[in-house]
Design a protein around this nucleic acid. Structure first.
Length: 916
DNA sequence: TTTGGCACTTAGTATATGAGTT
DNA sequence: AACTCATATACTAAGTGCCAAA
């Protein structure tokens, strides 16, 4: 839709001034609400930005409650995930080394052909054109009335109370030091000093109105930074680098004879020589003793090079290069791993008869080499459909269906309790696709005359049966599944065994698009091997196709990309579905680290960027003015860039695609944003902006209809091109990472006080929540939320009753009288007053904890903390904070997060996100 | 310059898992 | 052992951004 138009030449800078740091208050509150048609119909989610209102700061988030996993934790034993954790079922993972299975390669070769893929195209046709009109709803249905945010929220948030008492039950405090053992290379992180001053993210400042952070005291953090010894090296000694080198080719490891070792990270390295004894994958970390301690840095580099060299190398580094420089080049150069790769490279070659497309595709990625050797077993397919024979009723009479027809009918029947089931769009799309299977002349002519109840009930019974299975049966089943999947779960990348993220091909089903997706309900057909392209190292055995008689579409050997397999998305054939390594892999870790370094690097340029856009608020050139305002919004509000979308997608927007109707000017200088963002999550926020911004936005709206683009001269590529001129490698999304991470860093350092672990965790959660609000990370209120709160309330009341009894008995004991009998009529034995006091204290603590938990639960019912933790918060901030404050890292990161962030574990305690 | 292909990150929700209870 | 509940993980949709071709 809206395309843009020209750009204007040049700009001049006006001279605006305004300091960026002004106190704008951006809060997210919505004041409005009025319209809201927006909320998705869906029930619950009141997507309204919850946020709002609450000023984060003040809300006492209460304790996280014990969430913590193990309390005991204390020891953080190696906190590292690394090792172990992988849950590999331990079984001997190794054994299956991938290769084994692989057998012949013969088959493959590109023949793809045979499969004819049928795409059904959809005909959905719904234009959707509708756009949202400004308020409300233009568009039809989409937005439903939401409960309105604002008020609602207010109402809802009960919380504020102070409950915070915290106590920690477990005392887990572990010495931090002990906690993290691994170290990392210092690489990039290099020195950072902590200055507290720096600028805080605007967002934060501005954000909620008022709620600013209070700062000042950085709690006494440690100032003296210790030299961080990188000591790490020590560990290394062990580095056993696997000798991988040999392997590349060899990697094919014969099945058995492989030896595996674990590298530093606990990853298993495989080397042909050893026997596979058990390698317990990281699981037991134990295994390899030594390795575990190896610094991550090394890990990255890992072995490949045999040279062990290494030791210290790490330092090298790029540092900012990453950031500043365009990533590409930097990447290679510097990272140790890359170097390593390079070396090996050559060896790999080998023939590959199998290989099919040798042509290395132009690869789109960044063109950089990502790996040298890559071995895996391909993907696993969902089991074929098992017909149940239950008939649906058509106008009250049972109807016979073919297996294929039944399969699709079942997909629909099973969704009866979801909101999709009643959505016209969903039903229409489903009907179109199902009807194609039924045939025009089928008895069934109308979806509304179909009664899927029999199948739905059968489904419930099956579910129940499953639930009723004994624990052993369930366990057996699970093991069986595990056994089948094990070989597909791992890949060996440059000699290191790594978990694959999604090795299962997506099963057929009905498309569940979010929001008012025009394609919801369409049949997502079953994917066949002949639609799948694999990517594997040259010379590595080509995975056998798991479905007899079929073959892969193609086998590539492109080491400039990280995917292991892909196929065309059946819903949108122009897009693809990829199989990648898991989040805990080195490849992903490296890229994650680069992402944070890039964001961190922004710290050094943010002032300049703000000065620039401020100046351009008054630029003569409209495009320049739009770029300035858009950049301002992205910086202050952490909005997404906003790429153009097709008509066959849900109608959502980001900064560059905001419509005139999404923005409302409220004199004197407030702007109310109300739009559906990614995943059709509503963003409602009223903020005070710089007067010049206010004026500029008014200009951009002038003479346009509500559905026109606010930034008609802009799109993400123009915006990013501009950002790149300011800072190489800078793009719009970097601001979100920057704002999220710096907000966490600053809130943690300013608000962490002495106290027990529980109190500190409360501080962390509060900071995490603030970030989630800034990023508008929402979640649906669970269906049972209300009931859960009621139950908790009741339980608290009960406990309070008991407390009252205890107090009565204490008084009586003091007077030498026996206790009263319990409310249940039971007798209670006499105790000494101090024993009663002790009980009272325990009971009070229990009540407080429960109240705290309840408040936190209510407070966070619509806020998703996980998304920012996983994607936006530099884990080094968290790790360093945990070290400084002796909080076991396990209290903050789950097992999988520990794995994912293995690269950040050995950061120095003084690490600060801002280098300044 | 715009469009589309491609690769990869980010996101909410469904489901599995596990801790705490009863 | 069976439940409850809550979190952790699995799943896959929906973004961003780059590049080359149109």
């Amino acid at each position: 839709m809206g395309t843009e138009t020209v750009s204007k030449p040049v700009m001049d800078n006006g001279s605006g001034d305004s300091d960026d740091d002004k106190p704008l208050a951006f809060k997210r509150n919505n004041t409005v609400a009025s319209n809201s048609n927006q909320s998705k119909s869906n029930s619950q989610r009141s997507k309204a930005v919850p946020t709002t209102k609450v000023s984060p700061m003040r809300s006492p988030v209460t304790s996280p409650n014990g969430t913590t996993p193990s309390n005991k934790t204390s020891i953080v034993k190696s906190s590292m995930p690394s090792s172990s954790s992988k849950a590999s079922p331990a079984k001997s993972p190794l054994r299956n080394d991938m290769p084994s299975t692989v057998k012949d390669r013969s088959q493959l070769q590109k023949d793809q052909s045979e499969c004819k893929i049928e795409h059904e195209d959809s005909e959905d046709d719904r234009p959707l054109s509708s756009i949202l009109s400004g308020n409300k709803g233009p568009t039809s249905s989409r937005q439903v009335s939401s409960p309105q945010p604002e008020k609602k929220n207010n109402g809802d948030r009960p919380l504020d109370r102070a409950s915070r008492i915290i106590k920690d039950e477990s005392d887990d405090e572990t010495p931090i030091s002990s906690m993290f053992r691994k170290k990392i290379d210092s690489g990039m992180s290099g020195g950072n000093q902590l200055s507290n001053d720096e600028k805080k993210p605007l967002v934060q400042k501005l954000h909620q109105n008022g709620s600013t952070v209070k700062n000042e005291v950085p709690n006494g953090k440690v100032l003296g930074k210790r030299p961080l010894e990188k000591n790490s090296s020590a560990d290394q000694s062990s580095l056993k680098k696997a000798k991988i080198s040999a392997s590349p080719t060899s990697v094919k490891m014969k099945q058995d004879s492989v030896k595996k070792e674990i590298d530093d990270k606990g990853r298993v390295l495989v080397s042909p020589k050893m026997k596979a004894k058990q390698l317990s994958t990281r699981e037991d970390g134990t295994d390899d003793d030594d390795d575990d301690d190896v610094p991550i840095s090394k890990r990255f580099k890992s072995d490949s090079s045999n040279s062990n060299t290494s030791s210290a190398k790490p330092k090298a580094v790029k540092l900012n290069s990453t950031s500043s420089a365009a990533k590409p080049k930097a990447r290679n150069v510097v990272s140790p791993r890359s170097r390593a790769m390079t070396k090996n490279t050559k060896k790999v070659t080998k023939d590959s008869k199998y290989s099919t497309s040798s042509k290395s595709s132009p690869s789109s990625g960044d063109g950089q080499k990502k790996w040298t050797t890559l071995v895996h077993n391909g993907v696993i397919f969902p089991p074929p459909y098992k017909p149940h024979g239950i008939k649906i009723l058509y106008k009250g009479k049972p109807v016979d269906l073919t297996i294929e027809q039944e399969e699709v009918a079942t997909m629909f029947a099973v969704m009866r309790e979801t909101d999709y089931y009643t959505k016209p769009q969903f039903r229409e799309n489903f009907w179109n696709d199902w009807r194609r299977l039924l045939g025009k002349k089928h008895v069934i002519q109308k979806l509304d005359d179909c009664d899927f109840t029999p199948i739905y009930e059968w489904h419930l019974e099956e579910k129940e049966k499953k639930k009723q299975m004994s624990t052993e049966e369930k366990k057996a089943l699970k093991e069986e599944k595990m056994k089948q999947e094990e070989k597909y779960m791992w890949a060996v990348v440059d000699g290191v065994k790594e978990k694959i993220g999604n090795f299962r091909v997506e099963p057929p089903g009905l498309f569940r698009g979010r929001g008012e997706h025009p394609k919801m309900g369409k049949l997502k057909k079953r994917i066949r091997p002949c639609e799948i392209t694999l990517n594997i190292g040259k010379g590595a055995p080509i995975p056998e196709c798991p479905i007899a008689g079929e073959r892969w579409k193609e086998v590539k050997h492109d080491n400039t990309v990280t995917w292991l397999a892909f196929w065309a998305d059946p819903i949108n054939p122009k897009e693809f579905k990829y199989v990648f390594l898991g989040a805990g892999s080195s490849l992903k870790g490296l890229s994650d680290k680069e992402k944070y370094e890039k964001a961190r690097n922004l710290t050094d340029h943010i002032d300049n960027i703000r000065t620039t856009y401020t100046k351009n608020f008054t630029a003569k050139d409209v495009k320049m003015r739009q770029i300035a305002v858009a950049t301002y919004l992205i910086d202050k509000l952490a909005l997404r860039a906003g790429n153009e979308k097709d008509d066959d997608e849900a109608d959502t927007v980001g900064c560059c695609t905001l419509k005139v109707g999404n923005v409302e000017c409220i004199p004197p200088n407030k702007i109310k944003f109300d739009f559906l963002g990614k995943d059709s999550i509503q963003y409602v926020n009223t903020v005070e902006v710089e007067p010049l911004v206010y004026k500029a936005i008014g200009q951009f709206q002038a003479g346009k209809s509500k559905t026109d683009d606010l930034f008609d001269e802009l799109d993400t590529s123009k915006l990013n091109a501009h950002l790149k001129e300011l800072v190489p490698g800078l793009t719009a999304k970097v601001f979100r990472t920057y704002n999220a991470s710096i907000t966490l860093d600053e809130m943690l350092s300013q608000e962490t006080k002495d106290g027990d672990v529980t109190q500190k965790i409360v501080v962390y959660q509060k900071a995490n929540k603030e970030v989630a609000i800034i990023c508008n990370h929402q979640r649906t209120v669970s269906k049972t939320h209300g009931a859960q709160i009621e139950k908790l309330t009741a339980r608290i009341e009960e406990l309070k009753e008991v407390l009252k009894e205890l107090k009565t008995n204490l008084d009586r004991a003091k007077k030498g009288k026996p206790p009263l009998e319990g409310s249940d009529g039971k007798k209670i034995r006499s105790l000494e007053p101090n024993a009663w006091e002790k009980k009272i204290a325990q009971q009070s603590a229990k009540i407080e904890k429960m109240e705290r938990d309840m408040h936190t639960k209510e407070d966070l019912k619509t806020v998703a903390l996980g998304t920012s933790k996983i994607n936006y918060l530099d884990p080094r901030i968290t790790v360093a904070w945990c070290k400084r404050h002796e909080v076991p890292i396990e209290k903050i990161f789950t097992k999988s997060l520990l794995e994912k962030f293995a690269w950040a574990m050995d950061v120095e305690p003084e690490y600060r996100f801002s280098r300044r």
